[in-house]
Design a protein around this nucleic acid. Structure first.
Lengths: 186, 203
DNA sequence: GCTTTAAAAAGTAACTT
DNA sequence: AAGTTACTTTAAAAAGC
C-alpha cells in the first residue's frame, strides 16, 4: 500500500468578493499610484498587496477577485486588508466584503513514480498528449476537480472549492493508481 | 472514395453545404499532408460527428476540420504533428490543439499514445537518412524500454534523438541541426533526449 | 471566445552570455 | 554549452466586447 503519505501544498487560492457598492476606479488610481488600471484592455483595476502576496482585481460594480493566497483564510484576510487600505486611502467603502472561495490550486508529491502511458490507457476521463503538455490531465467527478499527473509522481490539483476537496481528490486518485498498479515505488 | 460524405449528401440542406466545404478542404489538406484516403474518410467521419453534436456553433469550421484531420491521423497512427497540420491549413497550432481537445472530450474519443517509433520514417526521409539508420534508430527506441524514459516527452524529440544516435553509430554524416530541422525540434531538445538515451542504452 | 490575475507541475523554445 | 525568461496545460471569478 502507500509507502508514503502524499505531500500536499496549497499554491494558490482564487476568491471572489463583493462590497455591494459602485466603485470609482479612477479615484482609486489617483489615490494609489502603484495600482494598475487599463480600462481599454481590461475593466478591472489591479490592486497588489505585499502581505499576503496577492493581486486583487476591483471592478466598478464593487465586485472583486483576489488571487495568489496560499490558503482560504489568507484569501479572506487579503480581501479585508484591501478594503482597509482603500478606506485609509480615503475611499469610502460602507460594507465589509462578502468573500467566496472559487478555486484552490495545490501541488502534490505522491512519493513514487507514475506509469503515465499505462495511466493514459486505463484512467477514465483522462487525456495524455506529450506533444502538447508533459502531464496527463484527469477529470475527477467527485470531488469535481482536475488533476495533472506527471511521471515524477508529482501532481497539480485544481478546481476545488474547499481545501478538503483537494485531500479527497488526492486520496481518491492515489488509491486508484495503486489499485491499477500504476505507481512505481523505489 | 469519400463515401462517408456521399452517403449523406442526398439531403440538400445547409448541413449539406457545410459538408461540401468540409470535403473540399479535406481533399486539399490530403495532398498537402500526403495522407491516405482512409485518413481523410476518418476525419470526415469525426467531423460529421462533431456537426451532429453541434460543436460547430460559434466556432471556426476550418479549425474544426483541421483538428478532425489531426484526430484521424492520431487514430490511424499516421505521424503528423499539430505543426504539420497548422502549416498545411494556415490555422494556428494552438487553435487546432484546442479544437482537438474539444473533440476528445465532447465525442468521448480515446486516442492511442503516440509511438515515437512511428515518427522515425518521416524524419529520416526529410533528412535523407539511410534505411540502415532508420532500422538502428528503431532498435534504439525499442531497447530504451520506452515507458521508462519517454513519459512526458515529445515523441518527435525522442525519435530525432534516436536517429541522431543511429547516425553517429552508423557513421552517417548528419549534424544535430540537420536532424532537428527535419523533426521540427531544437538541437537542445535532441541533446536533452540524447542524455536519457545514453543512460538507458549504456552508450 | 478574448481581455487580466496567480501558481504549480515538466517539457520545449528563444534569446544572452 | 549554460542561463534566463517565457510559453504550453488545468480551474475560476470579475465586466464587456
Amino acid at each position: 500500500m502507500p509507502q508514503t503519505k502524499p505531500m500536499v501544498s496549497v499554491e494558490n487560492v482564487v476568491a471572489s468578493a463583493d462590497v455591494m457598492q459602485k466603485m470609482d476606479l479612477n479615484d482609486i488610481t489617483r489615490k494609489f499610484p502603484d495600482v494598475e488600471y487599463h480600462p481599454d484592455s481590461f475593466p478591472g483595476l489591479v490592486f497588489r498587496l505585499k502581505t499576503p502576496k496577492t493581486a486583487t482585481l476591483i471592478f466598478t460594480s464593487g465586485k472583486m477577485v483576489c488571487t495568489g493566497s496560499k490558503s482560504e483564510e489568507l484569501a479572506k484576510k487579503a480581501v479585508k486588508t484591501v478594503v482597509q487600505d482603500l478606506r485609509k486611502g480615503g475611499i469610502k467603502v460602507k460594507k465589509n466584503a462578502v468573500v467566496t472561495i472559487q478555486n484552490i490550486v495545490a501541488s502534490i508529491n505522491l512519493g513514487g513514480k507514475i506509469h503515465l502511458e499505462q495511466a493514459a490507457r486505463t484512467l477514465p476521463r483522462s487525456m495524455y498528449e506529450p506533444e502538447q503538455f508533459p502531464g496527463l490531465i484527469h477529470r475527477m467527478v467527485d470531488p469535481k476537480t482536475v488533476i495533472l499527473l506527471f511521471s515524477s509522481g508529482k501532481l497539480v490539483c485544481t478546481g476545488a472549492k474547499h481545501e478538503e476537496d483537494v485531500y479527497r481528490s488526492v486520496n481518491n486518485l492515489h488509491a486508484l493508481l495503486e489499485e491499477k498498479e500504476l505507481m512505481i515505488y523505489d | 472514395r469519400l463515401r462517408t460524405w456521399d452517403s449523406r449528401s442526398q439531403v440538400h440542406e445547409p448541413v449539406d453545404r457545410n459538408f461540401r466545404q468540409a470535403f473540399s478542404e479535406l481533399d486539399r489538406l490530403k495532398d498537402k499532408l500526403a495522407v491516405g484516403d482512409s485518413v481523410i474518410e476518418k476525419a470526415a467521419y469525426i467531423y460529421r460527428k462533431a456537426l451532429e453534436k453541434g460543436l460547430v456553433r460559434g466556432r471556426s469550421i476550418s479549425a474544426l476540420i483541421a483538428s478532425a484531420l489531426y484526430a484521424a491521423c492520431r487514430d490511424t497512427e499516421t505521424p503528423r504533428t499539430l505543426k504539420d497540420i497548422g502549416q498545411a491549413s494556415n490555422i494556428k497550432r494552438k487553435d487546432i490543439a484546442r479544437c482537438y481537445r474539444l473533440l476528445l472530450r465532447e465525442l468521448n474519443l480515446k486516442m492511442p499514445v503516440v509511438d515515437p517509433v512511428k515518427c522515425i520514417s518521416r524524419i529520416a526521409s526529410k533528412a535523407g537518412l539511410s534505411e540502415k539508420t532508420k532500422r538502428k534508430a528503431t532498435k534504439i527506441l525499442q531497447t530504451a524500454e520506452e515507458q521508462k524514459i519517454s513519459a512526458g516527452k515529445d515523441p518527435m524529440g525522442l525519435a530525432a534523438a534516436a536517429l541522431y544516435v543511429a547516425c553517429v553509430t552508423n557513421g552517417e554524416n548528419k549534424t544535430q541541426r540537420d536532424v532537428a530541422e527535419a523533426a521540427g525540434v531544437t538541437e537542445v531538445t535532441i541533446r536533452n533526449r540524447y542524455k536519457g538515451l545514453k543512460v538507458a542504452l549504456n552508450l
